[in-house]
C-alpha cells in the first residue's frame, strides 16, 4: 500500500519533485490514487462508528430481518430511550464530566510547573528525574494500584473523586509524563530574553513563571487539558477500582450495561421485543462517546493542529 503512490511517480516526471515538498499539483494519476486510498482508509476508520450508529437505529424487527443491512426501514429511537434509562444518563454524564475535567485541569497546572522547572533550571539529578518521569509512563497501573487502593481505603477516599484528584495534584495523574514533556518542550522553545528582562526588573522566579512564561504557554495548556480530559474520560481500569461504589461514570456504567439492563427490564418479565439486543447496546455505546464526539468537533482544530502549536513529540 505504501509504495503505490510512490512507485507511480518515476514515469510522471512532472510530479517527481513535488511529492514530498511541493505545493503545486501532484498530477492526475497521483491525485486520484491519493483520494482513493484516503477514502478507503477513511472508510475503514469510520466503519465501526457507522455500523454502531446504523445498528442503534434499528428496531427489533429490522435486526431480525436479514434484508436490512445499512438502511433501517424506519428510524427507531426506542433503543436510545432504553439506553438513556439504563445508563442513568443525566447523572452519569455529569459525574463523567467532573471525573475527567477536574483531574485534567489539575494535571495541566502541576505539569506546567514541573515542565518549567525542567526546562529553565539547571540542577543535579535532572537526567534521573527524566528517567523517573518516563518510568511513570511505562509502569503498568496494576503494579501500583493495590497499595494505592489500600491507602485510599484507610483514608476513606474510595468512591470519592479525590482518589483521582490527589495523584493529579502531585503530578502523578493519568499519563502525566506526556504532559510534562509537552510543557518541557514548550518552555524550552521559548526565547529566554523576556524572562531575563523581567528578572533584571526584579521580578521573582515565581512571578516570572506566572506572568511571563504561563501566558505564552496557553496553547500547551489547551492541548494538555483536552487530551487529559479525553484520556481520563476513557480510562476505566483505575476509575473502576477507585470509584466503584461511589461515583458512576459513563464508561463504568457501559461496562456493566447487561446487568443494569436486566435490573430495569428483567428478562422473564418483558416481552421479546424488550429483551436486550445489540441495537440497545450499541445505542448505549453511542451515547457513551457522543459527548466526546461533540467536544472533538467543537475543538478539532486544537486536536489536529496541536502538532504545530507545541512540540508534542517526546524527543
Amino acid at each position: 500500500m505504501e509504495s503505490n503512490p510512490m512507485v507511480k511517480k518515476p514515469d510522471l516526471t512532472t510530479i517527481k519533485t513535488f511529492l514530498l515538498g511541493g505545493r503545486s499539483s501532484y498530477g492526475m494519476v497521483f491525485t486520484v490514487l491519493l483520494y482513493m486510498l484516503l477514502l478507503a482508509i477513511g472508510f475503514v476508520y469510520l466503519y465501526p462508528l457507522l455500523f454502531m450508529f446504523v445498528t442503534s437505529l434499528k428496531s427489533p424487527t429490522d435486526l431480525l430481518n436479514p434484508m436490512v443491512q445499512w438502511v433501517p426501514t424506519s428510524v427507531y429511537l426506542g433503543n436510545y430511550e432504553k439506553a438513556l434509562r439504563v445508563l442513568d444518563y443525566s447523572t452519569t454524564l455529569v459525574s463523567s464530566i467532573l471525573v475527567s475535567v477536574l483531574p485534567s485541569l489539575i494535571t495541566a497546572a502541576v505539569c506546567s510547573l514541573v515542565g518549567y522547572g525542567l526546562a529553565r533550571y539547571r540542577f543535579t539529578g535532572k537526567n534521573i528525574l527524566f528517567g523517573l518521569i518516563l518510568a511513570t509512563f511505562i509502569i503498568p497501573a496494576q503494579n501500583t494500584v493495590i497499595p494505592q487502593m489500600l491507602m485510599y481505603k484507610d483514608l476513606g477516599l474510595l468512591g470519592n473523586i479525590l482518589a483521582l484528584i490527589l495523584p493529579a495534584m502531585f503530578g502523578q495523574g493519568y499519563r502525566s509524563a506526556i504532559f510534562i514533556l509537552i510543557f518541557y518542550q514548550t518552555f524550552l522553545s521559548f526565547p529566554k530574553v523576556l524572562e531575563e528582562a523581567a528578572r533584571l526588573d526584579g521580578a521573582s522566579d515565581l512571578r516570572i513563571f506566572f506572568q511571563v512564561a504561563l501566558p505564552a504557554a496557553a496553547p500547551a495548556f489547551i492541548i494538555s487539558i483536552i487530551f487529559s480530559t479525553v484520556w481520563y474520560w476513557n480510562e476505566t481500569y483505575l476509575t473502576v477500582i477507585f470509584l466503584e461504589g461511589g461515583i458512576q461514570t459513563l464508561p463504568m456504567q457501559l461496562a456493566k450495561f447487561t446487568q443494569a439492563y436486566e435490573n430495569l427490564y428483567p428478562p422473564g418479565m418483558v416481552n421479546i421485543f424488550d429483551r436486550l439486543n445489540e441495537a440497545v447496546k450499541l445505542a448505549g455505546t453511542f451515547l457513551n462517546i457522543l459527548p466526546l464526539l461533540v467536544m472533538y468537533f467543537l475543538l478539532q482544530k486544537w486536536f489536529v493542529e496541536s502538532v504545530d502549536r507545541s512540540g508534542i513529540t517526546g524527543e
Binding site: I41, G42, Y45, L49, A255, L293, V304
Partner: peptide, 17 residues
C-alpha cells in the same frame, strides 16, 4: 477522520464494538 479514534478508544466502547 484520522484523529477521531483518539477520542473514542475506551475499554468498554471497544469491548462493545
Amino acid at each position: 477522520i484520522f484523529f477521531l479514534p483518539v477520542v473514542i478508544t475506551s475499554g468498554p466502547v471497544i469491548q462493545e464494538l
